[in-house]
């Protein structure tokens, strides 16, 4: 990481690609404007800068660290939504291709995120939610850095120092396999890679997704499937779950998870695309979405054979 190229997101405000993107989504000429106009303009601008930063970083051999103020999940969610919008509109432009490359990289776990937070309770609560949002989006969370920790030599009382350490431990408990490290001023710890921590890669991205046949006793249905997603910090979020179809040929092509207002889309595999989502069960840090076979999508076989054919499938996908 010592050779990393460090840039600030704001450095890309005048980048030609940022201007091109902003102009493409300009509100000028829009027939209808609704919602938060100022927020929408700010969102377009930040998304444009992120796209420009990714474009620059993607061509470099050494890693690029982009310093971002504010909520990274909100920024990435907006960028992915713009990419989805371009794909739905079938815009075959270089800009649309760049946006897709970026969103694919995010969903595939190719973008790492190091979260930095001060040792304060409100900040810790916010970080918990943001980590959950980032994981749902597919960001590979390298770790959470809590800094600067209060030091004795700076005159901080023992009680405050203990409280800060307690908050770090609490955050680690909430986020289980996401490493949380504390640092005093001037020292930056190195976060071990997922492989070094013994976490096996699951599917295309860092998100833990499994698909299993639905047990008959749980639903009484005839051969459905259950998609399970585990997201660190999920239980501290306001959760909504839905399905969305990018392709009208299928009932749904994506699971949509909204965590405290940030939307993440998880792409479904070919089996679940041909099923209809029934309900979501949220327990702890896991979401289980049950699907039933859509008879219209399985014309060549009966319901039971269609289910058993995919019965023992278990795979990860993000």
């Amino acid at each position: 990481m010592s050779t990393a190229h460090v840039v600030d997101l704001g450095d890309f405000s005048d980048h030609p690609l940022a201007r091109e993107f902003s102009e493409s989504f300009s509100v000028t000429g829009a027939s209808r404007v609704s919602g938060d106009l100022a927020g929408a303009i700010a969102s377009v601008r930040r998304t444009a800068m992120l796209l420009a930063a990714f474009d620059v970083a993607n061509t470099r051999v050494d890693p690029t660290v982009v310093v971002v103020d504010g909520s990274v999940p909100e920024l990435v969610s907006d960028a992915c939504s713009f990419s989805a919008l371009l794909q739905v509109s079938a815009a075959e432009t270089p800009l649309a291709q760049r946006a897709k490359t970026m969103s694919d990289a995010v969903a595939g776990g190719d973008v790492e995120w190091i979260v930095v937070t001060p040792p304060e309770r409100a900040a810790m609560d916010s970080v918990t939610v943001q980590v959950a949002q980032g994981c749902a989006l597919g960001l590979s969370v390298a770790g959470v850095l809590v800094a600067p920790m209060p030091r004795k030599r700076d005159g901080w009382p023992r009680k405050i120092r203990q409280s800060a350490r307690g908050l770090v431990d609490q955050l680690q408990d909430r986020l289980f396999d996401i490493p949380v490290q504390r640092s005093r001023a001037g020292k930056v710890p190195v976060f071990a890679s997922r492989e070094a921590r013994g976490i096996e890669p699951r599917g295309a991205g860092p998100l833990s997704v499994t698909i299993s046949p639905e047990s008959a006793s749980s639903s009484g249905s005839d051969g459905g499937h259950v998609l399970s997603v585990t997201i660190p910090g999920l239980q501290y979020c306001d959760v909504e779950v839905g399905v969305w179809s990018q392709d009208p040929s299928y009932p749904s092509t994506h699971i949509v998870v909204r965590l405290d207002g940030v939307i993440a889309r998880i792409e479904l595999d070919s089996t679940l695309r041909r099923c209809v989502a029934v309900e979501a069960v949220v327990a702890g840090d896991s979401i289980a979405v049950s699907f039933r076979i859509d008879p219209g999508q399985w014309p060549e076989r009966g319901l039971s054979s269609g289910a058993s054919d995919q019965g023992d499938e278990s795979e990860g996908e993000a």
Binding site: S31, Q246, S252, V256, E279, A280, V282
Partner: peptide, 18 residues
């Protein structure tokens, strides 16, 4: 103004918390 591109609507699912 061209016709605005509208993303397909999300169908929100009922959530059960055991």
């Amino acid at each position: 103004a061209p016709e605005p591109v509208v993303l397909p609507a999300v169908r929100w699912l009922p959530i059960r918390r055991p």
